[in-house]
Simulated assay, not measured.
Amino acid sequence: MTPSYVIPPLLGIPLIGLALVRCDDPWKAVVLRSSLGGFASLLFATYGAVDVAVTEALVGTLLSTLLYTVAIKSTTTFRLLQHPQASMPPEQEQQLRRLLSMVGLRLELIGIAPSSATGDLHAAFIRNDENQPTVLIRHRSLLAELTARDSHAVREMNLILDPSLGSR
């Protein structure tokens, strides 16, 4: 017979695993993954496998949570280059933040181009020949997704594919 103190980890692991598989938000998934490792550590410790429990707690919970957090933070940031003297109007910035949040991205405004050329940039804010604010996006699939979500806002903000990319 299973002792009653083992039941919470035994029930928690499949329930958290199911919630983890069905989760859409990467930040919620990190929390669920971390709690899954915690429950597994408890279960291992309960059955006397203390060495496995400590390993699961350190590697499966702490280290993996740290690595997932760094990976999610770096992949959910949309870096926009803008000249400090010709910055984006606040209402357009808010509209762009709202539009990007629809696809799970957060906006980071950069005043000076990074030294690694354009690899770290996702878009640039410029004023075109008619002095109209324009955002040159470097990712065709992102522009298509934003257009599918809110084509009116994309046209209004003048989001276009960066012409320097050519046929890529």
Rank of each mutant, 00 (worst) to 15 (best):
V54R: 11
T55W: 02
T55C: 00
E56N: 05
E56L: 04
A57M: 11
L58S: 10
L58E: 00
L58T: 11
L58K: 00
V59F: 12
V59T: 04
G60F: 05
G60T: 05
T61F: 07
T61E: 10
L63I: 11
L63Q: 02
L63S: 10
S64Q: 05
S64K: 00
T65P: 00
L66T: 12
L67W: 03
L67V: 14
T69N: 06
T69V: 09
V70G: 04
V70Y: 10
V70S: 08
A71K: 04
I72C: 06
K73I: 04
K73A: 15
T75A: 09
T75K: 12
T75R: 15
T76R: 15
T77D: 02
R79Y: 06
R79S: 07
L80D: 01
L81N: 05
L81D: 06
Q82S: 07
Q82V: 01
Q82W: 01
H83C: 09
H83L: 04
P84N: 10
Q85K: 13
Q85L: 13
A86D: 09
A86G: 01
S87V: 08
S87W: 05
S87C: 10
P90T: 08
E91V: 11
E91K: 09
E91C: 00
Q92S: 13
E93H: 06
Q95I: 00
Q95M: 10
L96S: 07
L96P: 07
R97P: 00
R98V: 08
R98I: 06
R98W: 12
R98Q: 14
L99C: 07
L100V: 03
L100W: 05
S101G: 01
S101C: 03
S101M: 03
M102Q: 14
M102F: 04
V103S: 09
V103G: 06
G104K: 03
G104W: 02
G104T: 04
L105T: 03
L105Y: 15
L105P: 02
L105Q: 13
R106L: 03
R106D: 07
R106T: 14
L107P: 05
L107G: 02
L109V: 14
I112G: 00
A113M: 13
A113P: 08
P114Y: 04
P114H: 06
P114F: 03
S115T: 12
S115D: 14
S116A: 13
S116K: 11
S116E: 13
S116F: 05
S116W: 03
T118I: 10
T118E: 15
G119F: 08
G119Q: 13
D120E: 15
D120M: 14
A124I: 11
F125I: 08
F125E: 05
R127L: 13
R127H: 12
N128S: 06
E130N: 10
N131S: 11
N131W: 01
N131K: 09
Q132E: 11
P133H: 12
P133L: 12
T134M: 09
V135I: 15
L136W: 07
H139G: 00
H139V: 01
H139N: 13
R140I: 08
S141A: 12
L143Y: 07
L143W: 06
L143M: 08
L143N: 06
A144W: 02
E145D: 13
L146P: 04
T147C: 04
T147Q: 10
A148G: 06
R149V: 10
R149E: 12
R149N: 11
D150E: 05
D150H: 03
